[in-house]
Simulated assay, not measured.
Amino acid sequence: MKLIAGNSNETLAKAIAEHLDTPLAQAEVRRFKDNEIFVEIQENVRGEDVFFIQSTSFPANDHLMELLIGIDALRRASARRITAVIPYYGYGRQDRKVGGRTPISAKLVANLIVTAGANRVLTLELHAGQIQGFFDIPTDNLFSTPVLERDIREHCADVNKLMIISPDVGGVVRARALANRLGADLAIVDKRRPKAGVSEVMHIIGDVSGRDCILVDDIVDSGGTLCNAAEALLKEGAASVSAYCTHGVLSNGAIKRVEDSKLKELVVTNSIDPNARKSASGRVRTVSVAPLMGDAIWRIAHEESVSSLFE
């Protein structure tokens, strides 16, 4: 088994390698003067089971091209099997046509990865589960629920006061899974989105009075949805509001928005490199998914069940 890291999230890649007690293989990703990307694998990978670790986070296009060119380099180097390990799948929110003459970019990116030569994909918390069907190769979609559950139990004074909140109707399945593991109740924020990147809270479905509420989502981008939901929950009598999100995109002044909001804390995973953020915040905390992804990689390499990680 060989582990290779792209430039998008070397921190996570090193943590996965440490968890597996397997050093990262030597590879170089560099750019020519015209900014063309060049990937050179500096170890023999012929006949090897290779895992290329690369989130397609900001800058998404550069990191996507690194992934595609790296896969192509491994295929031409006669790797036996190439697994694209994508902790954060960029373009995942473009999973359907939202209007006339619009693309389904999540499918296009899947086609590119398959065409480049990947034999299978390992990813984390896809924005929509059906994206797995966009790939014509085996795809394992991990869930961050065990990681979030463990952190909540470690930092929550009274689990009996907890209420898990889905910030929209589309995230109910995700929120219910976490609520069931914690033995907590579930509430839903009924919101509408008049345009992309803008959300308005309409109603709170459920009684949140006196409860410690935890908003659960897959992606936090601008942070507007979570901040608006926190304010609405507190108006309905919630004792406190925190948020747990798998992918901390945190663009467009999101960290300052969280700082100025009623949120007690925002917890994200390191699926996107936290060192890439332009500013830090005492209210934004990171938990690691390296053990989860490392265990999944080990199981794939040894032909064992991945789904049993969540049983």
Rank of each mutant, 00 (worst) to 15 (best):
R96V: 06
A118M: 01
Q94C: 08
V121K: 06
G100P: 06
R101H: 02
T115F: 02
N35Y: 09
Y88M: 04
S78A: 14
V39M: 08
G129A: 14
L108T: 14
F143K: 06
D72V: 05
N35C: 03
I71Y: 10
I86M: 12
S57F: 11
G47F: 02
T83K: 02
I69N: 10
V109A: 05
N141Q: 08
S78N: 14
D72S: 15
Q130E: 14
A116M: 07
P59E: 06
A60Q: 10
I82Y: 14
I86Y: 08
A106L: 04
G129D: 15
R96D: 10
R80W: 08
D62F: 06
R76G: 05
A118F: 00
I82K: 13
P138C: 03
N44M: 09
E36F: 08
R75V: 01
I137H: 07
E43M: 00
R101A: 10
G129Q: 13
L67W: 10
V147D: 01
N141T: 01
I71R: 11
P87I: 01
I152T: 04
S144W: 03
A79C: 11
V121Y: 01
E43N: 01
L124E: 04
I113Y: 02
Q42H: 11
V85F: 08
V147T: 08
A60S: 15
E40F: 03
R120K: 10
R80P: 02
V98E: 15
Y89Q: 02
S55T: 05
H63N: 15
D136S: 14
D151N: 14
R76E: 07
I71M: 12
Q130S: 11
G133A: 11
F51S: 12
G133W: 03
I152F: 01
D140A: 09
F135K: 08
I69W: 11
L122Y: 04
Q42K: 15
A60V: 15
L126R: 00
N44E: 14
A84E: 06
H127P: 00
N119M: 05
P103Q: 04
G70F: 08
I152Q: 02
E40D: 14
V50T: 10
R80G: 12
D140P: 00
A110R: 07
I71S: 13
S144K: 00
Q42V: 07
P146E: 08
Q54N: 15
Q130P: 04
G90D: 07
P87A: 01
G117K: 07
Q54Y: 13
G90Y: 09
V109F: 00
I86S: 05
E48I: 07
I69K: 12
E40H: 15
F135D: 06
E36M: 11
S57N: 15
V147M: 00
L142I: 04
E66T: 11
E36R: 14
R76W: 11
I113C: 01
